[in-house]
């Protein structure tokens, strides 16, 4: 039984002033299942649609088409949720400094969502609860931070409070969009570890969006790789990291700067000034292994091994 089921999800943004002349396909037919309690990673470079996916799944933006089922009931079609479902889906963003109303003290920013969602009976209890979470997250003394304004805290501190704010609402599903990519390396751990601790304790399911394959490999149970709005590979984190199949995933792996094992770089084709994407595979213009079939048609996503799906003609030749 899946917690979240996504079928053929599409999101097009249209541009052009009067006539909708062209549209950007941010998400183009994405389907997957998220199992309760898992951390589901979404990997891709800028423009692959991963942020859009987070916004659509957290119901902050409407999809163009497709179906989203959450806990057995349909989410897609409208952004109006009943308060209970609304509480169950929360989101954390990349920029901690933008995640807080600059005019509110930390305490107000944390209390307001709890009041709206009727967490605890009164503010005293709520404050008690907030202090508990803050203490667990390493804020010492916790009440000293509640009276501060966001600009008085560091990025790492704000991002931890951002996680606490989301988790105080006891969500079943949490979208974490690049939640450490703006932070310094040495403070990333405190944020990721807090997230992992809390979601494990509360059995929260997480959609972990990142561009960093090594981080995703570290944190996630399943990983989905997106390229220009299309799913190109989906498997367990272990398989994606150890034996990636899709050329794009392999290229991504080989180019991730790492101080550990130096990997053989896979040369990719260079993109020209105007590289048009036709009806073929989205990765074909850069793919080092492409052949005629790739130019003609986008390959479907096929499960070629148990729990390992790839959209690539290399594996569908027969």
């Amino acid at each position: 039984m899946s917690l979240l089921n996504v079928k053929n999800l599409k999101k097009y943004y249209s541009a052009g002033l009067i006539k909708k002349r062209y549209s950007v396909k941010a998400l183009d037919g994405v389907s997957f299942d998220v199992v309760p309690g898992e951390i589901f990673g979404v990997i891709g470079e800028s423009g692959c649609g991963k942020t859009t996916l987070g916004l659509v799944l957290s119901r902050l933006e409407r999809e163009t088409s497709g179906e989203i089922t959450f806990k057995g009931s349909k989410l897609s079609g409208t952004l109006k949720l009943d308060p209970e479902t609304r509480r169950q889906i929360q989101i954390i963003f990349q920029n901690p400094y933008e995640s807080f109303d600059p005019r509110l003290r930390i305490e107000q920013s944390l209390l307001l969502p709890m009041r709206i969602n009727h967490i605890c009976d009164n503010d005293a209890e709520r404050r008690e609860k907030i202090l508990g979470y803050m203490k667990d997250a390493g804020f010492e003394p916790p009440d000293a931070f509640l009276n501060r304004y966001p600009h008085e805290l560091s990025g790492g501190q704000l991002q931890r409070i951002s996680i606490i704010r989301a988790m105080l609402l006891k969500p079943t599903f949490l979208v974490a969009d690049e939640c450490v990519s703006m932070l310094d390396l040495s403070v990333r751990a405190s944020v990721v570890n807090l997230l992992l601790d809390l979601v494990e304790r509360e059995r929260t399911t997480v959609l972990f969006i990142t561009h960093d394959l090594s981080l995703a490999g570290h944190v996630c149970d399943h990983i989905m790789v997106l390229y220009l709005g299309k799913m190109v590979e989906l498997s367990t984190a272990k398989r994606i990291v150890e034996s990636p199949l899709h050329p794009y995933t392999r290229v991504l792996m080989s180019y991730s700067p790492s101080i550990f094992k130096k990997r053989e770089k896979i040369n990719v084709k260079k993109l020209g000034v105007e590289t048009a994407i036709g009806s073929g595979c989205v990765f074909e213009p850069r793919c080092p292994y492409s052949f005629e079939k790739c130019v003609e048609q986008m390959p479907p996503l096929i499960e070629i091994e148990p729990n390992h799906s790839v959209a690539c003609w290399l594996y569908l030749k027969t």
Binding site: R87, L112, P113, I116
Partner: peptide, 13 residues
């Protein structure tokens, strides 16, 4: 478009 407004929406405000 700022994150804190999006979070407020997700919080149910």
């Amino acid at each position: 478009e700022k994150a804190f407004v999006k979070i407020a929406r997700a919080n149910g405000e």
